[in-house]
Design a protein around this nucleic acid. Sequence first.
DNA 1: GAACTTTCTTGACAAGCTGTCAATAGGGAT
DNA 2: ATCCCTATTGACAGCTTGTCAAGAAAGTTC
Lengths: 205, 205
Amino acid sequence: MAAERRTRLTPEDRSAQLIALGVASLADRPLHSLSIEWLSAEAGVSRALLFHYFGSKQGLHREVVRVARDSMLRATEPSPELEPLDRLRDTLTRIVRFVREHRGTFYSLVRGVASVDLEVREVVEQARIEQANRVVAVFLQLGMTDTPLLRVALRSWVAFAEEALVESAAGAGPDPVGLQDDEFVDFLVRSATAVAASVDSAWKS
Amino acid sequence: MAAERRTRLTPEDRSAQLIALGVASLADRPLHSLSIEWLSAEAGVSRALLFHYFGSKQGLHREVVRVARDSMLRATEPSPELEPLDRLRDTLTRIVRFVREHRGTFYSLVRGVASVDLEVREVVEQARIEQANRVVAVFLQLGMTDTPLLRVALRSWVAFAEEALVESAAGAGPDPVGLQDDEFVDFLVRSATAVAASVDSAWKS
DNA sequence: GAACTTTCTTGACAAGCTGTCAATAGGGAT
DNA sequence: ATCCCTATTGACAGCTTGTCAAGAAAGTTC
């Protein structure tokens, strides 16, 4: 596995290789088990090289989480040409698919990052903010009024959806609910609408 | 601070003292920064004593989290004599108060525990389950039908409430919402009702 | 094509924390 | 005052992070 002769890559290639290995590891192991020791052995390079590129273990974690987060955000990017509720449904459908296909990664992102360093947490936090903004845009377009409480509600709904996805998404563990994907997406759409409507009593669908 | 002469306590007293110090530290620091090293120095005992009582760092964490969790569950225990919705409102009111008075502890519990060891996570998970069960009981008593999806929804709503509490509860950081406690409780009650109703279309209030 | 330069890469070292175990000593019992 | 149980500890080993001066690929120049 480890090349006898030391190979010299451009900083971009080397960095990308190391981050990619780290991201791949998130599919099987939680973030905190991604040690400099392990990754350097896996990549066949010295530990010092990792410190050269990332400065610290947390620096490595930050980059790995950032890349994993961006791949999730890209996979679930809303289609602007769709009507609001269709757009929401489309995004949620793709999130359900993403979770089924990259369950470990999704879990590591939304669950396995909370207790570590603050900066790493903020990288994931930005994903939550982005997802919340997407949902806010949907309901503003549907005529709701933009209030701080609406944003808090939908930001919290993102946590709601993450919990539901982790616990009960298609193919996850015991799957006590036993819903089809589209039924589960229905559930998410209805809950989002219900939460949003519960803070905007003047709104009528 | 450290007694020159070694003092010998009963196992119960010593264990309680160490756990109490650990719980107190959760108010200021995240769980993962609670090291054997630090706690032993703080308590004025040897590190070996901590290993004697808790076996490992994770064992210590488990006990500390268990005690902190139980204090939160006890502080928010529902009053059985109240009507369902009043009981929910009462519990939520006390949770809001608990979060304001023990913000650091609450944060450490619901956010700072996720990425560490599995057993520690399950200790906190049991609190979520308990809280979810309390809410489920409320809506069953209000005539909703008990389905797996209702339980998933309300379990996810607990995550929703935790997020809202952490981000916007009274006295928390920037507090962009600026609600009074009872208005915030209103918001939580309405959102719970909305979520529950969104999965039980046959139900009428 | 050999010397040179750049910089990618590494081995060696220091420090901190977890975990182990035989040995020590506090304090109640006799 | 002495004995005995067991709460407590010092010393040791192992693993991981982080530092730094030195080593060695490749491209460049003559």
